[in-house]
Each structure stands twice: as C-alpha cells, then as structure tokens.
C-alpha cells in the first residue's frame, strides 16, 4: 500500500507542530540562583507543606540520612511547620555548586558521597541560609516543577547532625 506524498506546506506544519510539542513537553533544568532559593524559602515561610512535599525529590537527604519513603517528605515539612520553623529573617550566606567535595557540607560519609553522585543533578546547588529559626543548608536543583527547583536535601546546621 502506497501513501500519498506529503506536500511541502503540510511537512512544514508537521515539523512546526513537532518542535512546538517538544518544546512544550520538555522539562528544563533550573538555574539555581538567589531568586530560586528565595522562592523555596517563601514556601516554608508560608507553611505550604503540601507544595514543599511535592517539590521534594525522592530519595532526599536530611543531614547525612537518605530518606527513601514518599510519605516522609510530607512528615518533614509538616513537622517543621508545627515546630515553628518559619525561616523569618532569612538571608542567603553562600551558594555553592553541589559537585566535587561539596557533599561533605552535608556529611563526610561514603553514603552521602554516593547520594550526591547518583541523585544530585549537574545543576545542583547548596544554599546556606541563616534565619531567626536557625541555620540550614538547602540542596536544590533538577528539573523545574511548577516553576520551582526541586528540593533534594536539607541540613539543619544548629543541631547534632553527623
């Protein structure tokens, strides 16, 4: 069975449609800068645990612990909200690319080094923030979701983390 040849204008339309579809469906890696950090901090400040849970990657890192269960991201953000962690008065101290030895900022362990190698995308950045409710490291990166960077890790600096 022979198909009729596709005419030039039709070919152009198909090509345009394919490009448009590709552009529409293609996720883009977020450039994690101060603005992206501010957006995530604003969600914590607003106590939007549901959206924070959605943005949290799996597995994610809490200090040096790899958290693998989907429900635990929700528990994390709800508990932080309940504990009054509002990140009021936050200022960004430092923004560090997550490559190389940066994993040591979370924990200097083999497990955490492997976590960074396997689960942290090339655009991953570690944001050190200080607020009225303590100091934290936020590990952000990956593909944009609803216009936000993914939250890959959190380190609570004012504590007994390993």
């Amino acid at each position: 069975m022979k198909f009729p040849p596709v005419r030039r204008p039709a070919r152009a339309a198909i090509a345009a449609a394919v490009i448009a579809l590709a552009a529409f469906s293609c996720e883009s890696l977020v450039k994690v800068d101060e603005n992206e950090v501010d957006k995530v901090v604003a969600l914590v400040r607003a106590g939007d645990a549901a959206r924070l849970e959605k943005l949290t990657a799996l597995p994610f890192l809490l200090d040096g612990e790899i958290i693998a269960l989907p429900g635990d991201a929700g528990i994390l953000w709800r508990n932080l909200k309940a504990a009054g962690v509002t990140l009021a008065g936050t200022r960004l101290v430092r923004l560090t690319p997550a490559g190389g030895d940066a994993y040591k900022l979370f924990a200097d362990t083999w497990e955490v080094s492997v976590f960074f190698k396997k689960y942290v995308p090339p655009n991953g950045m570690i944001a050190e923030i200080r607020s009225d409710s303590g100091a934290y490291l936020l590990l952000l990166g990956g593909y944009a979701l609803d216009g936000y960077a993914r939250i890959i890790g959190l380190k609570i600096l004012d504590g007994g983390a390993p």
Binding site: L62, D63, E65, I66, I67, A68, L69, D72, I75, L76, N79, L80, A83, G84, V85, G134, I156, D158, G159, G160, A161, P162
Partner: peptide, 29 residues
Amino acid sequence: RRFVLGRMYFFIKLKYINNYSDKTYIAFM
C-alpha cells in the same frame, strides 16, 4: 539501617528541632 535506624534519626531530629541541647537528644546522637 535505612528504613529503621535512618528514620529514627529523622523523627528524633524533628522532635528536638527547638532543643538540640536536650540530654536525651545528645545521648541519642
């Protein structure tokens, strides 16, 4: 280690978030 010990850390870290100088927290860590 991952699903029990790691989650114990997770829960204790969150429970004591406002009091990391608590004796129980320090003993646990």
